[in-house]
Design a protein around this nucleic acid. Structure first.
Length: 425
DNA sequence: TCTGGGGTCCTAGGACCC
DNA sequence: TCTGGGGTCCTAGGACCC
């Protein structure tokens, strides 16, 4: 059996832990740049605000009534870590799937007491972290997802729902479950399934797996098996190093200036290099992309990207930034107002298994040792003294690309200075 | 004025090899 | 004159997730 533990309206719940005045009120958390609503309290959902609703399209009445906060990822990340620490008390097998969801494996635990154990887990998370969670228990991940939704939606379950693979109850649930609400089935696949007369989870479960595989893919076939109670989806090891590293941001306001994009890419490049070193990898190529805002009708549109190969695999910020700058120079055009740019590190290899080149000299070896020490120092300073203590190139005043986040709450759990600000302010 | 950011896996098709 | 059959590797793009 496997449980899916999922924080209710996670970002909102994190905010409420530190500001109880938000309890019972419509609360929303916004994406970067305060662009759209990415988390909603039940009260805000009840007002009809959808997931991803653009902030500037919200009716004025709702804006007056609701508390809308900028996102505070330092806080959510730390709360997420705490929740997972509690889960680890209940099973050695905890897989953090996303910032607000974890799978907890209960293989080998006696089934008779599992539901009780899950209730205790839920209460403990609430007591120790302040975060309310829902728990869905089932033989497979796809069914655990369904059970988790039920646990949250139906008050009768009191936050914990156990869904068996067989039985009349399961059949009734799946017959009423639109196929597009399953984990792994979205609109496109849903449209094609509808053409085959498959609209509900139950119909998909009863479909011939081989036929599904032929018509779609092995991915959908696995979902059929999972619906039948046979585990077919393994989770990627979350500890495994990433295969690509992407850092990108929308600008605070549009800009057509090369130096704005250059400065933004320097920041994104430095951040991506930090992530690269954090997982012990080297990159063999850097991809740079730029684009205008596709939502503005009548505005000339442009988007482009370029891959810049690196001569040797590297994790030195200076090499990566130089490659990013060359990439930008190759695709930048004047006459457009840009809205976003980003850097992706590609073709990553393990730093410990670096292939040595025949062309390398002793001097290269010395240079690499120097680079390694410098980067380690940069990372340590930024980690211990705060992000951007050391950076590459000077920031400009009033830069166009700086994020807007005017409604951010304090980093209560990770910064003493901001905790004090609450008490005195 | 204003619409997020960061990932994964799979498949098809081309290039190349014997 | 005859013009196979199988394999690998790589890349771009689609679909999906939170």
């Amino acid at each position: 059996m496997i449980a899916l533990v999922d924080g209710n309206n996670f970002y909102v719940s994190c905010e409420r832990v530190f500001d109880p005045r938000l309890e019972g009120r419509p609360v929303g958390v916004l994406s970067n740049n305060d662009g759209c609503v990415v988390a909603r309290s039940n009260e805000l959902k009840a007002l009809g605000v959808g997931m991803g609703a653009p902030m500037h399209l919200l009716p004025p009445a709702i804006r007056r009534q609701a508390v809308l906060l900028s996102s505070n990822y330092a806080l959510y990340g730390d709360m997420s870590r705490r929740v997972n620490q509690v889960l680890a008390e209940f099973s050695p097998d905890v897989e953090a799937y996303s910032i607000d969801e974890s799978f907890v494996g209960f293989a080998g635990f006696p089934e008779a007491s599992l539901e009780e154990r899950c209730r205790e887990l839920r209460d403990t998370v609430r007591r120790w972290t302040g975060i309310p969670v829902g728990v869905g228990l089932a033989p497979t991940r796809v069914l655990a997802k369904v059970a988790n939704h039920l646990a949250k939606r139906e008050p009768a379950f009191e936050g914990v729902c156990w869904l068996q693979a067989e039985g009349e109850a399961t059949r009734r649930v799946l017959e009423a479950w639109p196929v597009t609400e399953l984990w792994g089935v979205a609109r496109r696949t849903g449209e094609r399934l509808a053409l085959m007369g498959i609209d509900t989870a139950w119909q998909l479960r009863e479909a011939d797996p081989k036929r599904i595989r032929r018509a779609f893919s092995v991915v959908l076939e696995r979902i059929v098996w999972e619906l039948r109670g046979r585990p077919a989806i393994a989770l990627d090891d979350m500890a495994a190093p990433r295969q690509r590293i992407l850092v990108s941001r929308s600008f605070g306001r549009l800009t057509g200036a090369f130096h704005d994009l250059e400065a933004a890419l320097r920041q994104h490049g430095a951040r991506s290099a930090e992530k690269l070193r954090g997982q012990g990898s080297l990159a063999r190529a850097v991809m740079v992309f730029v684009r205008t805002n596709p939502f503005i009708a009548g505005e000339p549109q442009y988007r482009n990207s370029v891959v810049v190969p690196l001569v040797w695999p590297t994790d030195d910020s200076r090499d990566l930034l130089e490659a990013a700058r060359r990439g930008l120079a190759a695709i930048f055009l004047t006459g457009y107002r840009y809205q976003k740019c980003g850097v992706m590190l590609l073709d990553l290899v393990d730093a410990d298994h670096r292939q040595h080149s025949l062309l390398e000299t002793a001097q290269d070896e010395v240079e690499r040792g120097r680079s390694k020490r410098l980067m380690a120092t940069v990372d340590r300073l930024n980690r211990e003294m705060g992000r951007d203590t050391v950076r590459f190139g000077l920031p400009r005043e009033g830069n166009a690309w700086a994020l807007r986040c005017e409604r951010r709450t304090s980093c209560y759990t990770t910064r003493w200075d901001e905790l004090m600000r609450v008490k005195t302010g």
